[in-house]
Design a protein around this nucleic acid. Structure first.
Lengths: 404, 404
DNA sequence: TGAGTTTGTGCCGCAACTAAACAAACTGCG
DNA sequence: CGCAGTTTGTTTAGTTGCGGCACAAACTCA
C-alpha cells in the first residue's frame, strides 16, 4: 500500500537499540568508516547502514559517500563517518583556583567555542557559578547551535546523590555547598536546555582522556593528578567513571607514602596529598612559594627550567619516589592496565619517566611480572571536555530519547 | 498451517534475552514469585511467564502453580518460583592450608553434597588438585546429577589470563604454578563435563556472600578476610567480581597501617598483612603460636574464650585499630556501600564492633557524613560456594547456550 | 454471593534485527 | 582497456523477542 513511505520511515525508525553504541564508537573515534562500525557493533551491514543513516538524520554525524579515494586495501571503499561540524553541542564549565572557564563542546570532544575565563573566584559558589553559566549562555547564543545539556567541573569531591562539594577548600567555598543544585538552577534560569551535571575535575579529566586522549582503549584506567594543592584520583572502568557508591571513590590523597612525613589534616602523616603536590615540591626545592593560585605553574616551570639545579633535581627525585609509592599502592588495589598523570605529576613523569616506572614496578607486588604503562595526560582542557561528556552521556546512551 | 506446533515451539524458544537475568533473580532469591520476576525484569506478565516456563523446561527452576494459600495481600496469588532440587549442579573445589574439600553446589548456592576433605596438602599442586578433582568426580557419579562446570578456590592471587598462582606461599606451592591449567586438565581427564574455572578464595567468598549471604543487595561490596596467614580483599561491583585488568586487584595486604610496625617481605613496614593476621594477634597477645595450619582457629578461639584477659583484649584492640586504619584507606579509594569481614577479622568485628566502626569512621575522609555498614560474613563454606558461582556464571549469562 | 484486586494466558502486531542475493566501487593484472 | 577478485552498500524477505490488549483465573473482603 505504502511502499515508498514505509521504506523511508523504516530507515528512520530502525536501529533503536544499537544507536547508542554506534554513536559512542563515532564519538570516541573508534568507527572511522561504516565498515568498521559494522564489525565493532557485531551486526550486519544492513543494520549498521540503517543505524548510521538514522544518526545522520538526527543531525549528529556525517556520512561521506565519496571518501575521495582512500588509501590502502582493495575492495569498495567504505563510507567515512565523522562527527557533524554544525551539530549540537554540550555546555561545559569549570571552576578552579585560578579562575573559571566556559566552553561549547561538540561530539568527539571538539572544543567549538571557549570564553576567555575569569581569574577572580569569590567565596560564594552561587555567584561564581552564576557568572560562568552566564558566559556559557552567551557562547551558546552567539553560536546559534543546539544544546544537549550542561556539565560543570569543580575542584572538590562531589557527594552523590545530593551533589554537594565536600572539600572545596582550595577555592574557599564552604564545605558541603550544594554545587549540583546551584548549577542546575543557574542553567535553568539562563534558559539553557537539557539536563545539568556536576562532577569532580580529576574524574572528568580522566573521562575525557579515556575517550579522546591518552586513556583511549584502556579497560581499567587510573588517573592521578595535582592541582595547585592536593592530589586527586579517578578510575574509568569499561568506559564508565567509577565514582563509588556515593561519588567519593578515588580519594587517593591520603595514602601513606612517607611514614616520617609531615602531618596531614586527615590525622595521619606523610600523605600523598601533602608529599607530592606543587607546594611540597617548592618546599623540598627550598624555593619561596608564590600565591596559591599559581603554585602549579611555579612548580612546573621550576621543574622544566632548572632541572640541572641540585636542589630542584633532588626535590623532583624525592617526589617521584613518593608518588611511585602511592601509585604502587593503588596498583595493588585497583590493578589498572594504564595510568595517566596530570598536573605536577605529569611534569614529574616527563622529568624522569624511568625513575618513576622503576619505583612503581619495584613497590607493586607483581611489578616484576608485567608493569603498568604510565603516560602523561595529552588533552588540553581535559576537565572541561570531561564536563561536556557528562552532558553528552544521555545522548550516547539513547540518542532518540535524549533528543526528543 | 502448524498452529499448535508453532505455539508450543514459540513458548520454548521465547525470552532468549531475558532468560539470563531471570535465572539470576531466582538464583539470588530476589524473585520468589512470578509477579516479582515480572516487575524486577521490567517486562510484561506474558514475557515473564514465557521466560519462567522456558527455565522450567530447561530443568533449572520449579514453578509451583499451587502455592498453598500464601500470606498477606489480596488478589490472585502468584506462582512460586524456586530452584529445582534435582536440577544440575556445579562442581566446587577448594584448597587451603589445612586441607582440601570438594562439593556439589546447585543453583541458589545450595550445597548438595560435600566430601569430608583431606588435611594433607603437599607441595605439588598437580597432585593436590588431582586428588580433590577425584573427590569431585566421585561425588558427581554418586549423585547422578547433571553438571554445568567446575570451579576451584585457591589461597593465592591468580593472574589472568594465564591462570597462574602468584603467591601460594602459605601452602608451599611454587609461585607461578599454572593452577588454572592444571585444574582444567584434571577436570577433563576425570570426565567432568563443562568448563573449569579457578579463582582466589577471598574473591570467591565475596562473590558467594554477595549472592547468597551478608553482601546481598550491595552495589559496591568490599570484602576483607584473613586465612591463617596474610590478608586478602575482594570487591564485587554491580554483581560482578572486580579482579582488575589481570586478576590482581584488591591485594590489600600491603596497605601501611602502622608506620613503626614490623618489616614486611614487600619492602615496606607495618603492612596490613603482617599487622592484622592471626599470627600477629597471637604475638601481640603474647601466646605461643601453634602450627601454621591452625593459626586461625587458635587465634579465633583465644579471642572468643579469653577476651577478659588483659593481654588478649589489648591485642584485639590493637588489631582492631590497625584493621580500621586499613579499611578506612580502602573506603577512601573504593567508596563501598558495605564491608564484610571474614576469618579473624570477622572475629575481631564480633569482639568489639563499635570500636572498629568508630576507627573506620574517624579515619575515612567522609566518615562523619555517613559511615559504611561493616558486617560479618554469614555463609558456611563461602569460598566453595563462590567457586561454584564461577561455574554457574555461563549458565546465568545465557542458559540456552550454556546448556546446549 | 458479589465486588474489587491481582495475576496468568492467548493473540495480535511491530520494531529490530539477520540472511541472502544483488549492485556498486575499488585494486590489480594481463 | 577489460576482466577477475575483493570489499562494501542496498534491497527484500523472513525471524523473533517483546509490548499491548482482552479475558480468564484465583484470591480477599464486605
Amino acid at each position: 500500500m505504502n511502499g515508498k513511505v514505509s521504506t523511508t520511515r523504516t530507515k528512520l525508525e530502525r536501529g533503536r537499540s544499537a544507536l547508542g553504541p554506534a554513536l559512542e564508537l563515532v564519538h570516541t573515534g573508534r568507527a572511522p568508516t561504516r565498515a568498521v562500525l559494522t564489525s565493532e557493533l557485531g551486526v550486519t551491514r544492513a543494520t549498521a547502514g540503517a543505524v548510521a543513516a538514522e544518526l545522520e538524520a538526527l543531525g549528529l554525524i556525517q556520512v561521506d559517500s565519496r571518501p575521495g579515494s582512500a588509501a590502502g586495501s582493495q575492495g569498495r571503499p567504505s563510507h567515512r563517518l565523522s562527527v557533524r561540524e554544525s551539530g549540537p553541542v554540550a555546555i561545559a564549565a569549570q571552576v578552579h583556583a585560578d579562575g573559571f572557564r566556559a566552553a561549547l563542546v561538540g561530539l568527539g570532544g571538539r572544543l567549538v567555542a571557549t570564553a576567555p575565563g575569569c581569574v577572580t573566584v569569590t567565596a560564594d559558589p552561587a555567584q561564581v557559578i552564576g557568572e560562568v553559566v552566564d558566559d556559557c549562555a552567551r557562547l551558546l547564543r552567539d553560536s546559534g547551535l543546539r544544546c544537549v545539556g550542561a556539565g560543570l567541573a569543580v575542584p572538590s569531591a562531589v557527594a552523590e546523590p545530593e551533589g554537594t562539594a565536600l572539600n572545596p577548600l582550595h577555592i574557599a567555598w564552604p564545605a558541603g555547598a550544594p554545587v549540583s543544585e546551584i548549577f542546575a538552577d543557574c542553567v535553568r534560569e539562563a534558559g539553557i536546555p537539557g539536563p545539568a551535571f556536576t562532577g569532580n575535575d580529576v574524574n572528568l579529566a580522566a573521562l575525557a582522556e579515556h575517550r579522546h586522549g591518552a586513556g583511549r582503549g584502556a579497560q581499567h584506567l587510573l588517573c592521578v593528578a595535582t592541582g595547585h594543592r592536593g592530589v586527586g584520583g579517578a578510575l574509568v572502568l569499561d568506559g564508565r567513571l567509577h565514582t563509588g557508591s556515593s561519588g567519593l571513590a578515588l580519594e587517593v590523597g591520603h595514602l601513606t607514602v612517607n611514614p616520617e612525613g609531615r602531618p596531614c589534616h586527615c590525622g595521619g602523616r606523610g600523605c600523598l596529598d601533602v608529599e607530592t603536590d606543587p607546594l611540597a615540591f617548592l618546599v623540598a626545592a627550598r624555593r619561596e612559594p608564590g600565591p596559591e593560585e599559581s603554585l602549579l605553574k611555579q612548580a612546573g616551570d621550576l621543574l622544566r627550567t632548572e632541572y640541572e639545579d641540585a636542589a630542584v633535581r633532588g626535590a623532583a627525585e624525592e617526589l617521584i619516589d613518593r608518588l611511585g609509592l602511592g601509585l604502587a599502592g593503588l596498583v595493588n588495589i585497583l590493578n589498572p592496565d594504564r595510568i595517566i598523570l596530570g598536573g605536577l605529576h605529569r611534569a614529574l613523569l616527563d622529568a624522569d619517566p624511568e625513575r618513576l616506572r622503576a619505583v612503581v614496578a619495584d613497590r607493586s607486588l607483581w611489578g616484576r611480572s608485567g608493569s603498568v604503562p604510565i603516560l602523561p595526560c595529552t588533552l588540553d582542557h581535559n576537565s572541561l571536555v570531561g564536563a561536556a561528556e557528562l552532558a553528552w552521556q544521555p545522548v550516547l546512551d539513547d540518542p532518540l530519547a535524549a533528543l526528543a
